[in-house]
Every structure is written in structure tokens, then in C-alpha cells.
């Protein structure tokens, strides 16, 4: 995650909308982002966000998990409200919250990743490009949540494919939880970065689609972590 995903070097730009109710944070983030990330809109509430996203049609939405307005659903509500754009616009959740409930809720609503607000501008830029390219972005903490929710035992063949992680996916998640970047994960497991990305995307899909009883139960139980 330390090196920008290469896309910015190729001269590509990504159009983003920043959704956060703190104006100070929005301007700070804007200043921190790489010039290749073009901010095309900002919003501070759920309604504004849905409106701005529909009008600007950005590549990526940087979305705070906690937002005022709407029916109190915060970032999750923005994603469901912009469901029509989910194919072209991708959401990256950005939060100070450590609460598993918040994080898992936005991921399950359709966000492609989750990062904490304390990470550096370069890291956010990298994450934005990654999400724009269709990949998933997992912070160590999100990987920890995933491992906690799916359990650390690899899938049996008999299990529903969506309910467990494969041995390889577990390995990737563990390394990310340990603080490895995708590149380091690839090096450690002797696989290509592309393969790492594939695994992470698969995990994201499972996280979003699994109806695993434990997952929902876990999210409800561990609303505080």
C-alpha cells in the first residue's frame, strides 16, 4: 500500500467525491491527496451525498461511515441510495470508527474497501486507485474483522463456499492483518500481486454475499470492539 498503484505514473486520473460531515477533514483530505486524484464534489449529509454522486458520477466515493441526515443509516444509506451507480462508481469507506458493526455494515452494503482516517495521503491515494481499478482495499483491522467473523479454520469441501475462507484466502487475510502491504503479501506467498488482489476481492465478495449465520450474529454481538 506504500507505492501508488502505478496508475498515477501512467498519467491516469481518478475523479472522486468526498463525503464527510466535517468540513475541516474534507479540506485536509483534499490537500493530502495526490494531484492525480481530482475531487469533483463534496457532501456533508446523506441527501447531499446521494445528489452529488448522481450528478458528478465519480469513479470513487470516499465515504465516511458516520453521516448525519437521511434515516440515520450513515454511509450505508448513501451506498444503497446510489445503488444504480454501483457498477460504475465505487465506494471506499473512510472512518475513525473501529466498531465492527459500522465497518461490516458499509462493506456489506457494497463498499469496496475500508481504511482508517489516520492513514497518510499517499496511502489513501493508493487505495483510491486500487478501488478505481476494481480491487478491494483491506486495512489490517478489516482483515482482523474478517478473520474474526469467518473463523481461522480453512473451509471444508462440504461447507457452503460463501461461508468460509479458503486456506489461501486465510493466509492473505492473516498477512494483511499483520500489517503487510499487497506487495509484501505477494512476496511472502510467492504469488503475483494480481493473485493477491484476486484473493482479496474474493474475500470481499464473501463478506458481502455470505448469509453466514455467524457473520450476522457476530456483527450484532461485536458491535463494539
Amino acid at each position: 500500500m506504500t507505492t501508488p498503484a502505478g496508475a498515477s505514473a501512467a498519467g491516469r486520473t481518478v475523479r472522486v467525491v468526498i463525503v464527510d460531515d466535517h468540513a475541516i477533514f474534507r479540506s485536509g483530505l483534499k490537500a493530502d491527496l495526490d494531484p492525480s486524484v481530482v475531487v469533483v464534489g463534496e457532501a456533508g449529509t446523506v441527501e447531499q451525498a446521494i445528489e452529488v454522486i448522481a450528478a458528478a458520477r465519480p469513479d470513487v466515493v470516499l465515504l465516511d461511515v458516520h453521516l448525519p441526515g437521511g434515516r440515520g443509516g450513515g454511509g450505508r444509506e448513501v451506498i444503497t441510495g446510489s445503488a444504480a451507480l454501483l457498477g460504475t462508481t465505487r465506494f471506499l469507506a473512510l472512518s475513525v470508527s473501529d466498531a465492527a458493526e459500522d465497518v461490516v455494515a458499509v462493506i456489506r452494503a457494497g463498499a469496496r474497501g475500508y481504511v482508517t482516517k489516520t492513514i497518510s495521503g499517499a496511502e489513501i491515494t493508493d487505495a483510491v486507485f486500487r478501488v478505481a481499478g476494481g480491487d478491494a482495499v483491506f486495512s489490517p483491522r478489516l482483515a482482523g474483522f474478517v478473520l474474526d467473523a469467518f473463523g481461522t479454520a480453512p473451509a471444508d469441501i462440504a461447507d457452503d463456499e460463501l461461508d468460509k475462507l479458503s486456506a489461501r484466502e486465510l493466509e492473505v487475510m492473516r498477512l494483511i492483518a499483520r500489517g503487510y502491504s499487497y506487495k509484501e503479501v505477494a512476496k511472502e506467498l510467492f504469488i503475483s500481486i494480481k493473485t493477491v488482489e484476486t484473493h482479496v476481492s474474493a474475500v470481499l465478495r464473501k463478506l458481502q454475499l455470505s448469509s453466514r449465520h455467524e457473520l450476522t450474529k457476530w456483527a450484532a454481538e461485536r458491535r463494539l470492539l
Binding site: P140, T152, A153, R174, A177, R178, G179
Partner: peptide
Amino acid sequence: VSVYLEVSDGGAEVFVK
């Protein structure tokens, strides 16, 4: 510094990176 703790039936593991 990244610290990862995993506790499973097999034991406890800590990684400090």
C-alpha cells in the same frame, strides 16, 4: 508498528512488524 494477535484452539500467536 503493527501488532497482530491470533488466538485459536491451537494456541496464541503474536506478530510484531
